[in-house]
């Protein structure tokens, strides 16, 4: 069953604390919320320290959500740090027919496929490179979000823009918000699939 027919789209984000996977899952949820969807965004918490592996989830639904179980069969998995691939079973529960895997990497789709052995759709994006280029920090969440918008078409790019503005304006000011919006667009445009 595709995400469109079941009216439910579930995303799991694997990152490292500090990379913004938690806010990434929330921004995605809020963008979908703006489209009138029912949403859940929730992180898994451990003993938080910068660099530790993190998992966060987004559920987007046409109907009210009641379940509070973690997502075990995601429609999309986003990997914010290549190094996690060896430590964490990132493709667990990801359907090889319909599932989407998006990896923040400078490697090609073929190289990633060899490393992970996932037979389904793989997308690669140098989200860290984009973030370093625009903001001089490793905050790949926004370009990753752009890549997801392109790969899954689950929310319009404009909705993501709006949420980025709402999330960051007060904290970092308009100049950096604009850089983030550029990052979103670059993620959208530069993502490659194989």
């Amino acid at each position: 069953m595709t995400a469109a027919t079941k009216g439910l789209f579930e995303v799991r984000m694997h990152g490292r604390a500090g990379q913004g996977a938690k806010s990434g899952s929330q921004m995605l949820a809020e963008a979908a919320f703006k489209q009138g969807k029912w949403i859940q965004a929730f992180p898994e918490y451990g003993s938080e320290r910068r660099g530790a592996p993190t998992v966060s989830y987004t559920r987007i639904s046409d109907k009210a959500l009641r379940t509070h179980e973690p997502i075990t069969n995601p429609d999309a998995v986003m990997v914010f740090d290549m190094g996690l691939i060896r430590a964490v079973p990132v493709t667990a529960g990801l359907n090889e027919e319909a599932g989407i895997l998006i990896v923040n990497t400078t490697k090609s789709v073929e190289e990633i496929r060899q490393i992970i052995g996932f037979k389904g759709k793989i997308y690669v994006i140098d989200a860290t490179g984009i973030s370093l280029d625009l903001l001089k920090i490793d905050a790949p969440n926004v370009p990753m979000l752009g890549a997801l918008v392109k790969a899954a078409n689950i929310v319009p790019l404009e909705a993501a823009e709006e949420i980025i503005k709402a999330t960051f304006l007060e904290k970092i000011g308009m100049e950096k918000v604009e850089k983030n919006i550029q990052g979103l667009h670059r993620g959208y445009e530069e993502v490659k699939n194989g």
């Binding site: 929330q26 949820a29 809020e30 919320f33 029912w38 949403i39 859940q40 965004a41 929730f42 992180p43 918490y45 009210a64 959500l65 509070h68």
Partner: peptide, 12 residues
């Protein structure tokens, strides 16, 4: 309310 499951999960 349930810790983290509800307290830290965003919903409508």
């Amino acid at each position: 309310q349930d810790g983290f499951i509800i307290s830290h999960g965003v919903e409508n």
